[in-house]
Computed example of a mutant assay.
Amino acid sequence: MRPTIFLFDIDGTLITITRAGRVAMERAFAEFFGTSGEVFAEFSFAGMTDRAIVRAGIERVTGSCNESLVDRLMNDYAKNLAATLERDNEYRLHRGVSDALEIAERRPNGALGLGTGNLRLAAKAKLDPFGLFERFRFGGFGCEHEDRATILRWGAERGARLLGRAREECDVLVIGDTPKDVIAGHAIGASVIAVATGPYRAIELRRAGAVHVFDDLGDPEVREILHGG
């Protein structure tokens, strides 16, 4: 069995949080720019990286952008998110997540990581209430790049190093809930499990090219794929 790198998305795949991320992002912009909280009105965060969201927000407000400002707003967002999550108890772990992670962890020559658009600090803040963050030994994060495929590629390279293998010697399995997850996974040559636990329906995930589409990670076929069947 070939070494396998598992890259799990967070929002909509492992967990769902109501509006904490959006609230924290709007607050960061309001505190810095004095905006009224409407910067991201009618703006979908689904499948986007945090860095791309911040850049889009800055361009909406100022018409231009620079990297130092992106870094500043990302840091402000991460601080606001931690505070917002302390007050927001409306989040849940999706069905099948615990079993899926356990199977991936026990897979011989397997490496369990994250492939997420979240900043690393945001990923930790979101997963810590469930005791999940420390289970992921590596990852690719939204603080590193705006392009999801690049994030996944870097995550896969880190997983390969952890296994002591070249990236080309490993299979990569991306688990996500949006068309962007599907497209980015295929862009790096990975297999993809797509789950309809986020804002997209199964038919939309299939249209993006997903072959393995399930209602959630509790489907018995998901377990079979994770086992290597």
Rank of each mutant, 00 (worst) to 15 (best):
D88A: 00
L132C: 10
C65A: 14
D171R: 14
R148W: 10
R60K: 15
S64V: 08
I175E: 00
P179L: 09
A52Y: 07
C143T: 13
F130T: 00
N118V: 11
F32T: 08
E134L: 10
G57Y: 10
W154E: 13
D71S: 14
F133R: 11
L7C: 02
G57I: 09
P179T: 11
E134Q: 14
I15M: 08
L85Q: 01
D99R: 14
G209S: 09
I225P: 04
V195D: 00
E144G: 10
D88T: 00
F138C: 07
H212I: 00
M25E: 05
A190R: 04
I188K: 00
I58E: 06
L101G: 13
A82Y: 03
A190Y: 03
R120C: 09
D76M: 11
I10C: 04
A184D: 07
H212L: 05
I5W: 04
T4H: 03
A202F: 00
G110N: 06
G139K: 05
D128P: 06
S191Y: 07
G96N: 10
N109R: 14
I10T: 06
G142V: 04
E134R: 15
P199C: 09
A208L: 09
R106Q: 15
V174I: 13
G117Q: 06
K126T: 06
A111C: 13
A187E: 13
F6K: 01
V213S: 05
L14F: 02
E134V: 10
G229D: 12
L163F: 08
G21A: 09
L217S: 10
I58C: 09
R72H: 15
A52M: 12
E168F: 02
R153W: 11
G159C: 05
S68Q: 15
P179M: 11
G21K: 04
G110A: 07
G209P: 05
R223W: 13
V222M: 08
E102N: 14
E67I: 08
R135D: 06
S68L: 13
R161F: 00
D171N: 14
K180H: 12
L114W: 04
T18D: 14
G34T: 08
D147L: 07
L152R: 07
S191T: 12
T4N: 02
D177S: 10
D50Y: 04
P199H: 05
